[in-house]
């Protein structure tokens, strides 16, 4: 187990991650007392607001000083601090098994790093794969002590799931009604399109981060000659004769695909990030995700 953990999270990375925390731009209601400010007014030390007293309110929260001055009763409201839901949703289709390191492994590392940050900040962390059946529920993890369980869950995700992205996310949304941060780790290479899938997340009113992981082979294909390209997921065949014009066209297509995804996300208040599997996970978390505001 220790070896597995180390393959996903190196000690150096763990030391760096200790100093980080997950950030959300939205304020959600948590389930348990935590370290996050909640929408709910509660019993923290931080003053939030006043409101008129109505019979039945707890008299302990009446601001007596104001009553003395204004001869009216106001209730003092305080910020509530709750925990945060953090979901890492991994695409484990066959296409994610490509690249060195494979895109899935890269996604697992990223999920492990973010999940670790969540655990140490007392957030509720849940790791799922897109292809996870609707009925199957995994427990949310909380607290540093559950790091090993998080890693174990990640380890158990195997490539080869055949559920479409849209269907998988729909299932995810039905399973997890809670609000929170969701990080979708995928290559978005779904013949059915990614837009519908992401709309499901949007409907959940979650703080959505889409991390598109592409391998170097996809970004800069190193192929030549007359080829018969076989899709590893559905066996679809594309016959190409690689030459200058085709490579140019491929690059254009890739750029428009990536750019389209980015625009689609940013229009809907989501954060999009393109990750190359050659970029180290440490750099991605400590640098790119920080600038995107996911961690602090």
């Amino acid at each position: 187990m220790a070896t597995v953990s180390e393959s996903l999270l190196s000690p150096q990375l763990l030391a760096q991650l200790e100093r980080l925390e997950l950030v959300t731009r939205k304020i959600f209601r948590g389930r348990m007392k935590g370290e996050r400010r909640s929408k709910r007014k509660g019993q923290s030390v931080e003053f939030a607001d006043f409101r008129n007293y109505v019979p039945g309110d707890d008299l302990r929260f009446i601001d007596w000083n104001t009553y003395a001055r204004l001869d009216r009763m106001f209730l003092k409201l305080f910020m509530e601090e709750e925990d945060l839901h953090f979901y890492a949703l991994l695409d484990a289709s066959m296409s994610m098994d490509f690249g060195t390191p494979s895109k899935l492994l890269y996604a697992k590392q990223l999920a492990a790093a973010l999940g670790f940050i969540g655990l140490i900040r007392a957030d509720r962390v849940k790791v799922e794969s897109v292809g996870q059946p609707l009925a199957k529920r995994l427990p949310a993890l909380r607290g540093r002590a559950n790091v090993w369980r998080l890693l174990k869950q990640l380890e158990e995700i195997e490539p080869g799931e055949t559920t479409g992205l849209a269907q998988g996310i729909k299932n995810f949304c039905l399973r997890n009604s809670g609000k929170g941060i969701v990080v979708l780790l995928t290559d978005l290479m779904d013949k059915g399109g990614y837009q519908e899938a992401i709309r499901y997340l949007l409907a959940q009113q979650m703080d959505v981060y889409v991390v598109q992981i592409l391998s170097q082979e996809e970004l800069e294909p190193d192929v030549s000659g007359d080829l018969r390209l076989i899709d590893c997921e559905d066996g679809d065949v594309a016959e190409v004769t690689v030459n200058g014009p085709l490579m140019k066209r491929y690059k254009e297509t890739l750029n428009s695909f990536v750019g389209g995804a980015k625009e689609f996300c940013s229009r809907r208040g989501m954060t999009y990030l393109l990750a190359n599997n050659q970029t180290p996970v440490e750099e991605l978390v400590t640098s790119y995700l920080r600038t995107r505001g996911l961690v602090r």
């Binding site: 007359d226 065949v237 254009e252």
Partner: peptide, 18 residues
């Protein structure tokens, strides 16, 4: 042509290109 078969993650982008 007799083409060399190669397995790729997805022919999605290639199909769009060709």
């Amino acid at each position: 042509l007799k083409r060399t078969p190669i397995e790729v993650p997805s022919t999605y982008l290639w199909h769009k290109s060709i």
